[in-house]
């Protein structure tokens, strides 16, 4: 039982890492624009397909990571520029609907190019190799996912907490107009938030493909929504909150499936969304979020 439990914990850690990485972008964009970006999850899908293409092209793995990251960054910038910038200042709901439209657009472009059929996803053999840590068996890939996520998250915290640009991001998230009065070019900050967030999401797509072994154009929707839930748990707008929320959600989901009788497993998503609704109602600011001032 304890071995089983330990293996479940590793699974939770992997799932949580991926949620956390996606949630960071979600929460950054929300923090600055108060925009729930539904299309964020579809960047995960784009990242997964980009990875598959590059693996098939037999590029060296470090280059694959770099290119996938850049693909995500590029997509984020394009989406912000083309769709979100023109409607900036419109009511929140407009942005939300626009992001839904972009999500549908990306998914169906994916279907158009790759068809809706799931494709097998594979990584080079050395990543598939199995290693034993104590009595637990894991793949090299699993460890890579956990470590890469951790590194990315530490880099994010350093960026946001200690650098000049991170300081500007925090200031912009708190008060957009006053940030402009400080001479901060908020267009650049917003673009940067989309770029970083989408780059991370694309990397998460790479992990997602590796973890589940199959990808299809609609795969981004669920991680996108779950990342949103993770962000809500942590407190939308808080980057450390998003990471924490990602891990909490990952573990909660794995525990729900792994520890309850199997007849409960199909209700996994219902559980997750039920959890979301409950958290929204009893703890709307999440674990680490700030209370938002109400505007008339």
């Amino acid at each position: 039982m304890s071995l089983y439990f330990a293996e479940q914990m590793v699974n939770g850690l992997i799932l949580g890492s991926m949620y956390a990485i996606v949630a960071i972008g979600f929460t950054m964009i929300y923090g600055i624009l108060r925009l729930i970006n539904f299309a964020h999850g579809d960047i995960v899908m784009i990242g997964a397909f980009a990875t598959l293409g590059l693996v098939i092209a037999r590029l060296p793995f470090p280059i694959i990571i770099l290119v996938v990251l850049l693909v995500g960054v590029f997509m984020g910038i394009v989406i912000e520029r083309v769709a979100f910038r023109p409607i900036r200042g419109a009511p929140q709901v407009t942005g939300f609907i626009a992001s839904l439209a972009i999500s549908i657009l990306l998914q169906n472009t994916g279907i158009l190019i790759f068809t809706a059929q799931p494709r097998n996803f594979f990584f080079p053999d050395y990543l598939q190799r199995i290693v034993n840590i104590g009595q637990i068996t894991v793949r090299v890939l699993d460890i890579t996912i956990i470590v890469t996520s951790l590194v990315l998250m530490i880099l994010m915290v350093i960026l946001v907490r200690t650098t000049r640009i991170g300081m500007a991001m925090r200031a912009t998230a708190e008060n957009l107009n006053v940030a402009r009065l400080m001479g901060i070019k908020i267009d650049r900050i917003i673009m940067l938030a989309f770029a970083i967030g989408s780059g991370l999401a694309a990397i998460a797509g790479m992990m997602w493909g590796g973890k589940y072994g199959q990808i299809d154009p609609l795969l981004g929707f669920v991680p996108g929504l779950k990342a949103f839930i993770a962000a809500v748990i942590g407190g939308v707008g808080s980057i450390t909150g998003a990471m924490l929320g990602g891990y909490i959600l990952g573990f909660a989901e794995i525990l729900f499936v792994g520890l309850l009788p199997p007849s409960f497993s199909p209700y996994r998503d219902a559980f997750v969304f039920g959890l979301l609704i409950i958290i929204l109602l009893i703890l709307p600011t999440g674990l680490l979020g700030r209370k938002e001032e109400e505007r008339a």
């Binding site: 300081m167 925090r170 200031a171 708190e174 008060n175 107009n177 006053v178 009065l181 700030r290």
Partner: peptide, 10 residues
Amino acid sequence: PEGRQVFTTL
């Protein structure tokens, strides 16, 4: 600006 508006989290 009016009402101080310092960045409270910084």
